[in-house]
């Protein structure tokens, strides 16, 4: 069952007189519960692809259907809700709020969705436990190692029970051992909770763990010819 369907999706930028196509008529189907890796050189449009599926960016043309919903037609409020509930982002540079503790960071999506404070605390604690950060909940990001920070990110991405996790170069700032742990963690979530996992990566070791690898170049699916 395809949970994500992209049909003729393009994303173009206009810079003065030039038009740049970050994505060029992309067609892709992603199955529910699939672990998909997306590889390609810099500027191939991988991040744009991830942002568009995640609802952080809107396509200039084409349709994206996620779980039966045409997300390219959603207004800001509905799209934000989509991001909040159905998507979990994991970034290369972690993107945690520096003045908040790990626990508070994980609670952010729940605060945004108006969850009561007791419930959100409980859920956040559970998520942090599930990524193995029991004893680190009250630490701020600058008191955590890179690996720990990424775990907090993952916990945050998981806290609202999303259907899809989008990880953009999640191991880019980690050493090989930590990278392994993170990928293992993500794959675990994918298998156990049946969360569709889309990982953008340079690292072939990471891609190796995926169910399917898709290559991108110049905004198009497929290898460069």
């Amino acid at each position: 069952m395809s949970i994500i369907q992209l049909k003729g999706v393009s994303r173009t930028y206009v810079m003065g007189k030039e038009t740049l196509a970050a994505l060029d008529s992309v067609n892709l189907d992603i199955k529910e519960g699939e672990f998909l890796a997306i590889m390609g050189p810099s500027g191939s449009g991988k991040s744009t692809f991830a942002n568009i599926i995640g609802g952080l960016d809107k396509p200039s043309a084409g349709t994206i259907i996620v779980d039966g919903e045409e997300i390219n037609k959603l207004n800001d409020r509905k799209l934000s809700k989509y991001r909040n509930k159905k998507i979990g982002f994991v970034f290369q540079s972690f993107n945690l709020l520096p003045t908040y503790t790990a626990l508070e960071n994980v609670m952010v999506p729940l605060i945004l969705s108006g969850e009561s404070s007791k419930i959100r605390r409980q859920k956040a604690e559970d998520c942090l436990k599930s990524v193995g950060l029991d004893g680190r909940m009250d630490h701020k990001p600058n008191q955590l190692s890179g690996g720990e920070r990424q775990r907090v990110s993952i916990a945050r991405a998981l806290v609202n029970d999303p259907q899809i996790i989008i990880a953009d170069e999640p191991t880019g700032n980690l050493d090989s051992k930590k990278s392994e742990e993170i990928v293992a963690l993500l794959k675990n979530m994918n298998r156990k909770k049946k969360i569709t996992l889309i990982v953008i990566t340079h690292d072939p070791n990471v891609a190796h763990e995926a169910d399917r690898v898709v290559q991108m170049h110049d905004g198009k699916i497929g290898r460069a010819t």
Partner: peptide, 16 residues
Amino acid sequence: TREIGILRACGATRGT
């Protein structure tokens, strides 16, 4: 600015 981006990614609307 970064913080605003993070919050948006986590599902904050413009209104929020």
